[in-house]
Design a protein around this nucleic acid. Structure first.
Lengths: 211, 211
DNA sequence: ACCTGAACACCGTTCAAGT
DNA sequence: ACCTGAACACCGTTCAAGT
């Protein structure tokens, strides 16, 4: 009995398949479950095959992180889109999209932002999407400042602060560091609205926030 | 030639030594360099010896995290001490101690707060020091509210927000996510003072912040 | 150009055995 | 009670060889 040729020797789009497989494993087994060998197995190739496309595990993680950042950028973009010329609404919707991304896929968020990728500076695609996202936030902040919705001061600093506020709360929530005493009494939404209100000079419209 | 008895068969205080060794490795080689076998080697015992004191690697990580949290608590306590009955100064000094802890030993900070420890709820000592620290912050916030230094509202929510703000900024700084365009123009100190100013109803006294 | 299979060094964990 | 040494399954990485 001759061996059946299993489809074909070449995979077709292995590089892409590896990234997708990695994201899947991340969602189901977490950061510690993400191994190169599992990713290869899931893509139906030998454990050495990934090295044809990624120089090492960090390079695959860089690709997964970059994809995470891109998804985040897209999510923020779609969330903002309905609110042309309404900077406050844009800010809130964008912020909420960031939060949702973190809470919906905490391990992808972690890989993208929490130092699993060790030398992000070595990966130009990651640096690029990071820069683009930040620039977008800065221009939203500037629009808010012009509309007297945010205080004055250097917009980059304000953008970093707002980003930091959201990032910190999402991180603490994901890691389960926020005590149940607090979470039983106040919803995630309340906590974030209170946080954003520290920055804005006008009340935060809560009707935008889905869920 | 008979074998020299190498000191003694028993280590003496292996449990403690393993935690210290782990913290050392963390500082020099980062999270990915922290292995049980290295920790054992550094303590001069076989690679199976740690299992007499810790059920698995996560249990050692829990001990390292708990020690990190204790050091943080102590650091905040000493920073606050000089400012009895001056809630604003206490808040600033405590916040700055948190930031310093993160920037001085980023990998210990990461292990303590960024999900390297996977089920912190299983480790009562960790949960306990976490609770104590948070309670301390809440009571500082309450004192600030009474002195009209912070806005009203549920103190736990405000405490979570302030903690989240600091935590987010420290995390982004550690991970190198804050662009050089910003860091070249504004110091860490400036960024944190601006951040804290969003919360306070009075100007933030910067003379407290060492460095 | 893309992939396989064997090999190597390293890791976490277990367990029978030694002191 | 505390530690060792051998063993096992798994991992990242390399490399000669196959298609």
């Amino acid at each position: 009995m001759p061996v059946m040729p299993k489809k074909s020797y070449h995979h077709g789009d292995l590089k892409n398949s590896l990234v997708k497989a990695g994201i899947g494993i991340l969602a189901r087994e977490g950061v510690s479950g993400l191994t190169l060998r599992k990713v290869a197995r899931k893509s139906g190739v030998s454990h050495a095959a990934p090295y044809a496309h990624f120089s090492d595990k960090q390079a695959l993680i860089a690709a997964i992180s970059t994809e995470g950042f891109k998804r985040l950028y897209e999510a923020m973009d779609s969330a903002i889109e309905p609110y042309a010329d309404r900077p406050l609404e844009q800010l809130i919707a964008g912020a909420w999209a960031y939060v949702q991304f973190g809470l919906n896929d905490p391990d992808h968020f972690k890989v993208t932002f929490s130092g699993v990728l060790e030398k992000e500076k070595d990966y130009p695609a990651f640096v690029e999407i990071s820069r683009r996202t930040f620039d977008r936030v800065v221009s939203m902040v500037e629009a808010c400042q012009r509309a007297n919705i945010l205080r004055g001061g250097p917009p980059e600093v304000l953008a970093v602060n707002i980003w930091g506020q959201l990032h910190g709360l999402v991180s603490l929530l994901i890691e389960g560091q926020i005590s149940h005493k607090v979470l039983d009494k106040y919803s995630t939404k309340e906590i974030f609205v209170t946080a954003l209100s520290q920055f804005t000079l006008v009340p935060v419209p809560t009707d935008i926030l889905s869920i």
